[in-house]
Design a protein around this nucleic acid. Sequence first.
DNA 1: GCTGCCGGGGG
DNA 2: CCCCCGGCAGC
Length: 536
Amino acid sequence: MSASKRLAKRSIVGTRVSGPLKETGLYHPGVIIGSKNPDEFIVLQNSCHTGITPNSKYVVRFDTGDVREFSEGELVGPGFGNVSSLKLKPKQKAFVTHNGREVCGTVVYHRPQIDEVLINIQPQGPNEIPFDVTKKLDEVRLLESRKSARLQEQDFDFARLADMSDRKRNQQTASIDVPRNNNVSRKRRPSSGNLFQSLITSSNQGDDVMDECAAAMVLMSLSCSPHSPHWDNGMISSSWSSSSSGASSMLSANFGTPSTGAASVAGGASSIVSGVGSGSTGSSSSELLSSSTSSSHLNNCSPTPSSSDDGIESDAGDWDEPRKKRTRLIFKCTWPGCTVTKEACFDIEAHVRSVHLADQDVAEHEEEFYYTEVEVPDLSSPAPQPQHMQTQSLPTSFTLSANLIHQNHPHHQQQLHPQQQPQNLQHQHLGGVGGSVSLSSSVNLSSMAFSPTLSHLDMVRPASEDPEYKLNQVQQQRKSPNNTQLNPKKRLSPKSSPVRRPRGDTKKCRKVYGMDRRDLWCTQCKWKKACTRFGD
DNA sequence: GCTGCCGGGGG
DNA sequence: CCCCCGGCAGC
């Protein structure tokens, strides 16, 4: 039950998929680097922006470097098609598990009528010889597994796994639970490992979609339309800044409908809602983060947060376009007392690492927590400077996104999957449930509420358990002048007092069933863990 | 003292 | 991953 095992929500960008080359019909591995959706804006205005329409095109960069577009149905991968629907062609590169390890081979033949795929496995070592294996189609993968299965699991919501195992054991809930109280419940709705997967799933189920759209429309109409002044002026920029504005407040008020409503919307449509700010749910940055992340992939350490991207989450970026031209970003060291600013992320990282972290055994990318982007007027631009564009510190969410940008900076050898990064960060900086030290003692909700999130998972998960919420807390703390914990090691110290979960006041298995009927307890109660059956 | 549950450890 | 339990802390 460690926060470090949780992952942040994900965007479709970065998802590994396999797509067919028209020339050969063979599938090749690649990564989604964006999407194109001609209907997007219209859909958005209708407040039913699920990010998916039948016309969605996904831009996939093959591992070979080729970039191609595919429609949803063409792709195979998490959230997309399944190999089981394919007829594999000879010479198709495929991965299967053989003797407990993943091996790579090429398809010799595929006989769908008997569900048999003969795969020739190439030798993996000098002492091995090629051999053939026969597999069923659904045992064949077109994508290499990422790391171990364990690590793969960690890409998913850890608590979900616990829930699933619990559910498996109890077999008492056929449907997905909705948290009764999103503030303290440890129990989360199972979250898909892939946003699109959940979106598509709900789309396929059909009946949820309209409800989600309707809910989103209600939420949207409560605040403002895309045409409203708030929308045009305040929201986007406030979403990028820590400054307060009426629009933001309004958004937070109107969208801060915690779990009761939001959870029911949880699946696809919440991305709509979250696209305009999830407000006081407190989780703030996620999809904004994703947006920047996707941009970062394309722009490689560009200091511009929302460079244009055809990706599905680039809405803010599109609207941000006019502002972008009038401001620029510099990188400011946030180490207490240090006022160094740099033009390039590379430079500021070098500064932090060499000056502040030089004598410390810090984790990789640790330096990323010690600088932030600052938006400053771009004097080279002739455009007038609107009032709300005074020099502003960007929200922590953006700092994070910048960190993600840096992940792809050439000087980082380690090319992290964008989805892995939040976990990485969290792992390094959050000690346990509730975060380390006094992270949750003073949470500046006001600024967090302004950052929109485009991730529907925010709406599902209690804000307090949102990884990015915690990251925000970390960074809020770091930015706070009252933050006296200068040494990251101190922050990370396990000695630091974790914030204990408030004691639930509802009945627990122990009370309900008593010690003599311990076999009726939920697994968690048996294990002296937080009760999942009567969780608050 | 009872109870909930976190963190850690064994298998 | 399953299971157990020491120990902390709220009540």
